[in-house]
Design a protein around this nucleic acid. Structure first.
Lengths: 243, 243
DNA sequence: GTTCCAATTGGAC
DNA sequence: GGTCCAATTGGAA
């Protein structure tokens, strides 16, 4: 069991704001005009064994493969209050998602996706400087978050913007999403370390829910963004060498 | 100007049924339950210079890059009656799409996507043995088409099924979508010839409209399907060599 | 056996 | 400069 101080320390290590200083965003404020994809995969994510009290059971195989297990990035054994609260919130969201999906067939007029059973820990308009993106505890500055017009931006751009808020260009250029080698270049290209899976997962789910799209689409967007960052850095270095 | 006989010859060469023996499917019969993506890109496809009477102007740069220009696969200079009829139908569909998009904002309850200004050349339930998939003239046997439950199938599966109806496994294993080399293996892997772009384009658009998804998603699905076909053939050969 | 996935690449836009 | 795309690969699901 972790003490409150230990939790704050961990959150700080991960560059997260303390839990008292951010607002939760439950994806009910702004739905983008255009529905890009379905909740299908997102729902399936939550259809695992919900009762075991581990976040790992709430994630897709791909997610858990990425090591997104708890707020420390280790296997999910922590049972601190905050961890359990996040887990509880996830469960609630999962239930709400399932209900929403069932209602969708009958009520055609209501195309918003409320998650009524999730009560934000803090009121959304509380003036806090940070906004909570997901269950991993990732936050971004409210000022930056409100600059993002999800209705007009493509989801690919939203992903890039959020990632740029949480990772440096250097991290972005030198890491990969999974930490795995390219199957097409095994033994040829060195594997790159994995981007912090907690922050990535929070952003991933946040965007998927905002745009009501498949997680795999967000993953593709992240992969492309990472590849582009690498090429940008490469070009920069080549140019400097020429000078 | 091509004669009717010449047209039939060309259609025959491309393994198309004669125009008198198929039904048109205007994507209004069955909409899948789940909206996977938007018409955005599909619409943009049609927002080019519609008045020039060339199909090439109706395609995205990527499409025209693929060489999808006319029913012969050459640059679009043919002006035969049939060619013009298909072009006319495309224009009508484009107009309808634009109107539908404009109406969408005001009428929220109607989430079907009718294309009212397109009058099928033949009634849909005429008992013909072939069904027209798209403007390129690609048809599939009605019996096979009706086996496809678009509401339950993922779009990736629908693409595979339709492609399997129009291409042999050998073609599938030995061709690529664009005919280009892999950027990651230039000068290393031999380029594969391009799959008949006319049939591919018809299937591409048909599925995109059926599922209301982005063309690029269908392209990804085709790419993956081709890669899988190659691996299947490869495994088969390796197994035969072992025996 | 079939389908899906992410890392890598050069080029198109 | 930033964004998007398809061919290739082995392995996971």
């Amino acid at each position: 069991m972790m003490s409150a101080m230990e939790i704050d320390k961990v959150l700080s290590m991960h560059n997260y704001a303390k839990k008292e200083s951010f607002d939760t965003i439950d994806h009910v404020d702004k739905q983008p005009e255009k529905v890009v994809n379905t909740y299908q995969e997102s729902k399936m994510m939550f259809q695992g064994e919900l009762e075991k009290g581990k976040i790992s059971t709430l994630l897709t195989p791909s997610e858990s493969m990425c090591g997104v297990l708890d707020i420390k990035g280790n296997n999910a054994t922590a049972t601190s209050e905050d961890f359990m609260w996040y887990n509880h919130k996830l469960k609630k969201a999962a239930m709400a998602l399932r209900l929403t999906a069932d209602d969708k067939a009958s009520s055609a007029s209501n195309n918003s996706v409320p998650i009524p059973s999730v009560t934000p820990r803090e009121p959304i308009k509380s003036g806090h400087k940070e906004v909570l993106l997901g269950a991993g505890g990732t936050t971004v500055p409210r000022r930056e978050y409100e600059k993002l017009d999800f209705r007009r931006m493509k989801y690919t751009i939203a992903v890039r913007r959020l990632l740029n808020l949480k990772f440096t260009k250097e991290e972005f250029a030198t890491h990969s999403q999974t930490g795995k080698e390219s199957p097409a270049f095994i033994g040829v290209k060195a594997r790159k370390p994995q981007l912090d899976p907690v922050r990535v997962s929070d952003i991933r789910l946040h965007v998927a829910q905002k745009y009501n799209i498949d997680i795999s689409l967000v993953n593709k967007a992240i992969t492309v963004a990472l590849a582009d960052a690498r090429k940008t850095k490469k070009r920069k270095i080549e140019k400097e060498d020429t000078d």
